[in-house]
Amino acid sequence: MYRRKFVKAVGSGLALGTVASRLSFAKASPSSSHIAIGTQAKPTLALDGLMIAHGDRCKTAGLLQAAYDHGIRYIDTSMTHIAGRSERRIGRFLENRKRDQFFVQSRLKVRRKEVATSELELSLARLRTDYLDAFLLDTEVRNKIDDQFEIPDENTFEALIEAKEAGKIRKIGLRGFEESEQLDRLLKLYGEHVEIVMIPFGMGDDTKLMRQAQRYGFDLIAEGDRKLQQQIFTDKAGVDQLPKGLSSWVVSFTDPKTFKDIIGRFDELAGGAA
């Protein structure tokens, strides 16, 4: 009933804030729980923070609230999602809520260690928090607009190790791409410190990656391939084709009305994978 009321409020553009805050009280214990990184046997869902940066502020606040109401507490964002807008909006959402009920993950793309250190402070400021649950370094600095990319200095990852020691990050990790040369290089250097590796969804079955995950003891999580997600959540992909090695999937929710179906379908698939 609450959910229906909420969706109605979003649809008619009424006083969102009031309804939403009442709701968060009403739904203190979510029925389905995606609070942190799961396991291969029981993966969890994370919210794709890029979607929070698209469109106007009220609409995306509704998206965050809907995710919350459906038990999703794992939020993935990046410092460069619309030049920090995603982090800022998530920060406003987190500000008046109990911080420790969320697993907040951000990522950065920089080329030098000293910049990584100051960028973490910037990420914390935007997210209005004094710690991140996870912070990942892109293994390559890529730009969506063109094909140029650069390789970060080898010691950049040490900024994350130091920030973890200082209590500013709980878990540190890397984000890799289809071409895994840089990921391999960094794992050789810092593998013992790497707790999370984020990869494109289609690589969730990569046997080398799964071996590396076992050897270094990191969790493998996948970012949403937006097309593939559509197929998965509309029954078009067979369960047997789904990646087996993932502990979490970052899913690009865009419409509060679809949350229930997507989460239901995911739990079904995740159960099946187990």
């Binding site: 920090g84 800022r88 030098r112 910049v115 960028e119 402070e121 910037l122 400021a125």
Partner: peptide
């Protein structure tokens, strides 16, 4: 800087200087 708060502005100036 597109910073929206003081804390963010301070942090981003530092990042700009370092970059």
């Amino acid at each position: 800087t597109k910073a929206r708060t003081g804390a963010e502005a301070t942090a981003e100036i530092e990042s700009s200087l370092r970059r």
